[in-house]
């Protein structure tokens, strides 16, 4: 795994985008793998292409073009073999992609430390944090707008909802993205690995204010997060949010 881990950090290392969650390096490894595989094909194809143009350019020496119709087996294999090779590399990419997809989107790790509810609306993210007890829909839940506070290294489940139009919950450093759909609650997970303050985007156009639907995630150490929870836990328990049916339009 060390080998894969190291290449999975390629884009982080060149300063393009940080690795901030447990599965971010898996996704980056897949991207890097595809980059190498298709990069080799691409370069080979372009080089041969340019070489042919140079070599077979009409030079005024009266040489005529060859008459090749491509029906001959000996000629045809120049197409057949590369095309089988494309298939083999496709299979390689498919296998790795399956692994990543299953890890991120299908295999939900059990026993989360905290469950949060993220609700997209025009044009803000409403976050319902689990509070001190780690449970959702209890009296100590903390509600914020456009601010997601999480504790580093903890396993989070989220329930993603929307009240009006489609939104898409996206935190680039975690490599997470999931559309929020009115009328549904979609469950997913993440586990941050780096403390700091990062962008929380809405990646699906949601109307006039799509540009200003800007959130932040705050990944905090255990002490910082405990302090934040303590400072923000409601004194009087608010009425639990039970009505999550979307408003009809």
């Amino acid at each position: 795994m060390g080998f894969f881990e190291s290449w999975g950090h390629f884009f982080d290392r060149i300063g393009l985008i940080r690795i901030g969650s447990t599965y971010a390096a898996d996704i980056d490894f897949l991207i890097f793998l595809v980059l190498v595989v298709v990069g080799v094909w691409f370069l080979a194809a372009e080089l041969i292409f340019v070489y042919f143009i140079m070599k077979f350019r009409e030079k005024g020496d009266g040489r005529r073009a060859d008459y090749i119709d491509g029906k001959n087996k000996r000629h045809k294999r120049w197409i057949t073999y590369p095309h089988l090779a494309v298939l083999v590399f496709d299979v390689l990419i498919i296998v790795v992609s399956f692994n990543v997809w299953h890890r991120v989107k299908m295999d939900l790790p059990e026993n989360p430390d905290c469950v949060i509810r993220v609700t997209g609306q025009q044009w803000a993210w409403i976050i319902q944090h689990c509070g001190a007890d780690g449970e959702l829909d209890t009296a100590d839940d903390i509600y914020t707008v456009d601010e997601l506070h999480v504790e580093n290294e903890k396993l989070y489940h989220f329930r993603l909802e929307a009240t009006d139009v489609l939104h898409s919950f996206s935190v680039p450093v975690w490599r997470i993205k999931q559309d929020a759909i009115p009328g549904r609650s979609i469950t997913g997970w993440f586990q941050p690995t780096v403390t700091g303050q990062f962008d929380l985007q809405c990646a699906e156009i949601c109307g006039f204010g799509h540009t200003v639907m800007q959130g932040q995630v705050f990944v905090e150490s255990a002490e910082e997060h405990a302090a934040w929870v303590e400072a923000n836990t409601p004194v009087e328990a608010p009425a639990p949010a039970t009505d999550n049916t979307p408003s009809s339009g």
Binding site: F42, V96, V100, R175, E204
Partner: peptide
């Protein structure tokens, strides 16, 4: 060719999680 090969990144669902939109 560039359009074609970059499509592979997006066709692989695992990578599309990041690249989508």
């Amino acid at each position: 060719l560039i359009g074609g090969v970059t499509g592979i990144f997006l066709g692989a669902a695992g990578a599309d999680i990041y690249f989508h939109d």
